[in-house]
Design a binder for these strands. Sequence first.
DNA 1: GTCTATATTCTGATAGAC
DNA 2: GTCTATCAGAATATAGAC
Lengths: 212, 212
Amino acid sequence: MTSSVARGPYKPGKIRQQTQEKILQAATQAFSVHGFNGTSMQSIADAANVPKANVHYYFKNKVGVYTAVLENIIGLWDTVLNDITAEHEPKQALCDYIDAKIKFSRTHPRESRVFAKEMLSGAPHLQAFLEEDYQRWFSGRIAVFTAWIAAGKMQPIDPAHLLFMIWGSTQHYADFEPQVVHSLGTEALQQHHFDQAAATIKQVILAGCGLE
Amino acid sequence: MTSSVARGPYKPGKIRQQTQEKILQAATQAFSVHGFNGTSMQSIADAANVPKANVHYYFKNKVGVYTAVLENIIGLWDTVLNDITAEHEPKQALCDYIDAKIKFSRTHPRESRVFAKEMLSGAPHLQAFLEEDYQRWFSGRIAVFTAWIAAGKMQPIDPAHLLFMIWGSTQHYADFEPQVVHSLGTEALQQHHFDQAAATIKQVILAGCGLE
DNA sequence: GTCTATATTCTGATAGAC
DNA sequence: GTCTATCAGAATATAGAC
């Protein structure tokens, strides 16, 4: 009767996975507000409701926790961000991408801020990512825009700087939330604020690209 | 012969002012890379080439250094940023503002990053600024855009979100420099990169507002 | 796997001589 | 005003009992 079946739906390493995930979420929250150096292992442990030594048991050290948080964020993108492909018309692809990016700022502001802080510090822990997967993805997107322009489907606009515009505009709502909140005279950003943001960004970008 | 005139152009407090400025610049650089908690008073003192105790002599404590850096940044804006006023036509005003913002990202990337990091942390040291001077300035800009739209000088675009777009797009080049650098396949951002960025942003924003 | 106790290092801040 | 010496507290990390 020591069979795992008798004890219900047991999965090997389930506790390990759950505890690790709990620590990861607590760390993401802490890093997003206080940064790497401003976050103590003790505060992560407290927020995850585990003893401090357990954080060291699941992760090699503080840098290990931090890189795990960063990898988790990069993985999230593949899950929730629509991609820009030549299979769609530019108008539809841009709308979908802007909507997905704005939605990410609303549903994952902590992840957005951890990534932004890492960038602001010179991205010391993202060198490998920037030089491999990222550059491959970016080149592919440039190619899509270039094809659209060559096919006369959109005005000739520098694709790289157009992408930077979309990123900067959409991430602003997560990264500069205090400024946005005080600008709009609200207490916290609501769904309708994000809807209005997405509508304005799509309006300007589409007209700016001659797609209206 | 103890007259200050006999010793040349002596100015009271000149040494104090120079040392303070030296510390302020060193602190801006350090905070922009390592953040508040990642920056030690020792590292600021070393970079400014003064003993650590002198930093404590000129500033009350670490928070005092940090708030002085923030106040210096806010003061910079009045000096180098063109304002958006109803006296100009929208096209000219937007072009001038975008140019000034891009120039600020190029000439003051460290200041931009310190401010961005403060925002990302929830702007705990900028509450007073956000609730007073900033809100007054922002309301005034909204009024200018509203007047332009009412006079039929530009398409009806949400002024607040349009401003966020301009901010996000222009600040991106200072705040996300590592990503921009790897995207453009360069080693460091040059003047022509900023020129191309400004040209693209103006192209999209102007067409997006129906100003071309 | 979990947790307590501890070693080691670093940081902000100050006292006090010059 | 300048600088050396030092303190008190906090943080990372690990050893070792359970």
